[in-house]
Design a protein around this nucleic acid. Sequence first.
DNA 1: GTTGATTTCTGCAACGTTTTAGAACACGCT
DNA 2: AGCGTGTTCTAAAACGTTGCAGAAATCAAC
Lengths: 350, 350
Amino acid sequence: MPQRGRPRKARLAAQPEVSGKPTLKTIADLAGLAVTTVSRALHDDPDIAEKTRLRVKSLASEIGYLPDRAALRLRTGRTYVVSLVLDPHDEILGFGISLIRGLTRAFRATPYHLIITPHFQGEPPLDPVSHLVRNRMADGIIFTHTEPFDERIRLLAEQDVPFVSHGRTEFTFPHPFVDFDNGSFALEAVRRLIARGSGRIAMIAPSRQFTFCQHMRHGFMTAVRETGVAFEIPDGIDLDSPAEQIRAYAFERAGGNEPVDGFVCGGEVSGLAVMAGLTDAGRTVGRDVHLVVKQTSPVFSQVRPQVDVIVEDLEEAGERMGELLLGVITDSARRDAHFLQPPRLSYVDG
Amino acid sequence: MPQRGRPRKARLAAQPEVSGKPTLKTIADLAGLAVTTVSRALHDDPDIAEKTRLRVKSLASEIGYLPDRAALRLRTGRTYVVSLVLDPHDEILGFGISLIRGLTRAFRATPYHLIITPHFQGEPPLDPVSHLVRNRMADGIIFTHTEPFDERIRLLAEQDVPFVSHGRTEFTFPHPFVDFDNGSFALEAVRRLIARGSGRIAMIAPSRQFTFCQHMRHGFMTAVRETGVAFEIPDGIDLDSPAEQIRAYAFERAGGNEPVDGFVCGGEVSGLAVMAGLTDAGRTVGRDVHLVVKQTSPVFSQVRPQVDVIVEDLEEAGERMGELLLGVITDSARRDAHFLQPPRLSYVDG
DNA sequence: GTTGATTTCTGCAACGTTTTAGAACACGCT
DNA sequence: AGCGTGTTCTAAAACGTTGCAGAAATCAAC
């Protein structure tokens, strides 16, 4: 094979720098090449001889070169940052941390970093998002507790900023989301309660502002109509209500005439609160009254008496959201990708 | 007052750029000043006339100028990033998310961002930390589950990288930490159980590898010696054991001869597991056997029968850690600052 | 008026990267 | 020889910021 092209100038290879982290210049000096060449070699530019590319790459990995994030970001505008907007509604139990763990799994082999942007109670929900967008602080945004006409989504779609929401909207345009199938959850929960013998079923539903409230109610009502069972959905009580209020409701509705003997609980705290209310009212859970609880952490398997649970896997949700977001970032055509997570039924003795 | 110094050149103020986020140049053009001048004015350099400083600052806030993080980082080397190393041991219940929420509170009015660096199960614990240090990815590091001779702390102290640990060490050099007073926790827990009438007390302790295990054991043993009560600390069972194993242990030790009638549980999952085991064994919690549980989330107030809890406020811990870290970052002399968090007793009916 | 001190502002360089434009050389063909 | 072509590499500029070294004007003093 004939040697072609420009031959290497027999440049003195400077001795490797001792201090500081390696940069393109470090490699360039080591290899006797120009910084540009090294950059291109690492990017597999076909203009660079294969032999050189290989040499540069092995040199780079040898000295543990990692491109400088700041320089990259300054030059290219890409931040390689994804931000999770931490919702004040995020339940203590699992929601935040499982989701985060899933996200980190999705970003594991990528250069992306996960930053947490808090949304403080009382602030306008749009603030954290518009701050991120305006100052270009992230390549993509993740958030939870989506509303039917969520302003955050309107803004992000308008500005063409990649995002994935946990929860759906009622906008006409498509956008990437991951959601738990709360409709199926409620449907299955009611069916299970009826199989257990419940004759009057109540549901502790999400706050009306969230889209998933409608899904859960719809599933609930479908099952109720399908079976003709008596039901109630308390007004003014939702999953974000203080546990004490939920407990009091369960306590009250456990007795009187037309007592409730089946509860669908959309979350663990409400599940425990309902159980507490029933216990306090002298009812025996699992015998004269039944529960189906949506579980996002493994606590309920240790709660006694055992109750039927339906599992929402938030770590998986996080991982999917991360994957979808990376997809949208690299290819904005994937804007309508989504994932609807099926409920995982986990019932006590069959 | 006489006009002194160099007068403003009557330079044409270029019309404000419409596109892109504002930079120093935007302000400079607007004010008819040089970029350097604007930079110094914003930094309150006394070399710049007060009038100019005021004008520049009002201009800056008017157009919503925010220094570019990438440029700042590239130029100064400061990242304005703090990283939390997410431990795989972080309990689903509260640990992670409360701590994170507290951290974000501490960074609220600062330019610091919180990034989450995962530590995946099976990886060497040093990996995430040394990666952060080597590539200068953060100005400060936060981590949990500290060990007596924690390699992470050794490394960070050696490299002089600011950090705050959750938990103490047995190193001779001082370092910033926040810790819950697990000694007092165990001490008070035993006292409470004895007041309830327990005659044989067991403790579900942390895994031996963590420093706080020793503190908890020490507090426990102090109380045991002080009172002369019978006790046991099961071998091979700790807070990180599968809940089922803990349940089985409680189930077994609830009966037989010399049954245990008082449990100190260092965490919520173990608390629920012990209650489950006792219930399954036919014991009545609150009558013939008692529990004191360390609580980091509000779940236990809804668990029936109610048990005594001692609260560890992880959100406060996070906020303190954030504050301490900012202190160390800006003034490395504060390396020995720390905060020992007192247990908050929350007992059922007095 | 020149000089020097003081005040106030400016230009240049650098951080590490990618992009754009082009340079240096070898080869094959006339 | 000369020319075009293809291959392989490089110099310079730019992203937005700050530190350094000065520059331009004024004032006080001679």
